[in-house]
């Protein structure tokens, strides 16, 4: 099958600096992939490589089956949408004019621009100048621009930076709509909270190298990070001590009404059965390792690997 994005052993050097090193990454059509990493980890460089703005020093870059710097590049440019990091649109123009300009360049029918303004909740502000827009509105305009021509591939570079929680949620909601429609999305970010539910796979970059790649479940499994289980209820003091003294449980705290267990993933189900069988317990809450802790974990293992 052909990948939406296919990077094979890509290396990019700027003079003596290696920005990207041995990067291999395949994205299947319709997938939403989160490209995570610190500032300077190579996220933007990767996106620029995909857009054909820079050439790889080594390795092969293919986007929608073609080289982004090859002959078919113009056709390719009609099929992708891109939202650069912290872009500020022409302040003197209205939102509608900005979209019209980009729409003309992409040869999109004017009707589609209206629909996009509608879809992103910008119809009311469409005839106001961009300089009056809030950060959230600017970002929605940016997204509208990226969605011109119903792209097959969407590249979003740090779309949530500087957005308030509501604007962030709105952006993710739009993303979910696209996901349902089958658009392939590459989303780079270093703002992790809230992103989990909206992406299929995670690629963690560190110093230009791929540190981890997989679904969140796969990464959790691979990292073996502990789950935290919290239970509330009423029980005799000491009643749980002996029952929790078992392999796979690395720690717990208990008092008369609360129990907190930290355990590896493999004994999670056993513990749950035990807790649920106890009539005194009336609330159980399981916390899988968050994306943040996975991110920190993989960055630390990367650090250790380099040391």
């Amino acid at each position: 099958m052909s990948y939406a994005v296919d990077l094979q052993g890509v290396r990019k050097e700027y003079g003596a600096v290696t920005a990207i090193d041995r990067l291999s990454l395949q994205v299947t059509p319709g997938e939403v992939i989160g490209l995570l990493g610190h500032n300077g980890a190579g996220k933007t460089t990767t996106i620029k490589l995909l857009l054909g703005m820079i050439a790889a020093t080594q390795g092969e870059v293919r986007v929608l089956g073609q080289s982004p710097r090859g002959r078919g590049a113009k056709g390719l440019r009609m099929q992708w949408g891109y939202l650069p990091e912290s872009v500020s649109f022409y302040e003197q123009l209205t939102g509608r004019e900005v979209l019209k300009y980009f729409g003309r360049l992409k040869r999109v029918a004017p009707g589609e621009q209206h629909a996009l303004l509608d879809q992103l909740g910008l119809s009311e502000a469409a005839d106001r100048r961009v300089k009056t827009y809030s950060k959230g509105m600017r970002q929605r305009l940016g997204l509208a621009q990226a969605l011109l021509g119903q792209p097959r591939l969407l590249l979003l570079d740090e779309p949530t930076v500087g957005l308030d929680p509501i604007a962030t949620r709105e952006l993710y909601e739009t993303l979910d709509q696209l996901r349902r429609r089958g658009t392939t999305v590459i989303l780079s970010s270093h703002v992790l909270p809230g992103i989990e539910r909206h992406i299929d796979r995670v690629a963690i970059l560190r110093k230009g190298a791929l540190q981890a790649l997989g679904t969140l479940d796969e990464l959790r499994h691979e990292a073996g990070l502990p789950f935290t289980i919290r239970a509330k209820g009423r029980w005799q003091p000491g009643a749980w001590d002996s029952r929790l003294n078992r392999p796979g449980v690395t720690g717990y705290r208990v008092n008369g009404s609360q129990l907190e267990i930290v355990s590896g993933g493999e004994s999670k189900m056993d513990l749950m059965r035990m807790l649920l069988a106890d009539g005194g317990i009336h609330d159980v809450d399981v916390q899988a390792p968050s994306l943040e802790s996975l991110y920190v974990h993989y960055n630390q293992t990367g650090e250790a690997g380099h040391a």
């Binding site: 857009l51 872009v87 649109f89 992409k106």
Partner: peptide, 13 residues
């Protein structure tokens, strides 16, 4: 500086 150049370069022109 505004970032629109980068964007325009991703367009078919």
């Amino acid at each position: 500086e505004a970032g629109t150049l980068l964007l325009l370069l991703s367009y078919p022109l």
